[in-house]
Amino acid sequence: MGCNAERVAEVLRAGGATVAEHKAELIELDRAIGDADHGENLDRGFAAVLTALDGGLPETPGAVLKVAATTLISKVGGAAGPLYGTAFLRAATKLGDASELDAAAVAAGLRAALDGVVARGKAEVGDATMVDALAPAVDAAERAQSDGGDPAAVLAAAADAAKEGADSTVPLTARKGRASYLGERSVGHADPGATSTALLLRAFAESAR
C-alpha cells in the first residue's frame, strides 16, 4: 500500500507526539553535554508543524514534507532547525510531485534526507551526531526495500537501525556542535540529536503500520 499526503501528515503527527512525550528526556540528554534546548526546540518546531498542517493539507507527500521543513527551519531556533529542516526539504525535493509513496520512494527520501544533513552539518558517522542514527537507518531502509518490504517495513527497519545507532553514540567523543566543546567529557552520554532521530523514525514506523 502506498502512502498519500494524508498518511504522511499522520506520520508527522505521530512524530510530533513522540517529541512532546520525550521532551523532558531530550532536554536532560542535552543538559548533560549541550545547552539543554534540544527537547524544547524540537517540541516547539513540531508543534508548529502540526499547527501548519491543521491549517490545510497539501496535496502531495512531498508538499507535506516541505511544510514541515520550512516550519522547522523557522521555528526551532537551534541546530535541529537547519538540520531537520534540510532533511525534510531534501526528502520533499526527492519525492517531487508523486501522489503516493512506495517503499522505494520512502527509502530514496530517507537517503536524500541523510545527504542533506551531512551537507548541512558536515558531520560523519562517529562524530556523535544525528548522522550516527540516520546513516545506518538509511542503509537498513534500502536493504528492507530491496528485500521487498512495504513502506512500513522500510521505516521499521530504519527505526531499529537508528535506535542502535543512537545507542552507539554513548561511548563516542562528540566532534560537532555544542557537545564538542566538552571533548572527552562528552563520552558516556547519548547524543540528543541521534536520540531524537531514532525516536522520530520509531514513531513514523509505528504510525505507518
Binding site: I73, A79, G81, P82, L83, R120, G121, K176, R178
Partner: peptide, 11 residues
C-alpha cells in the same frame, strides 16, 4: 558565533 548560527546563516 557558534555552530547552528552558521547553519542558519547558510540557509
Amino acid at each position: 558565533d557558534l555552530g547552528s548560527a552558521q547553519m542558519t546563516a547558510e540557509m
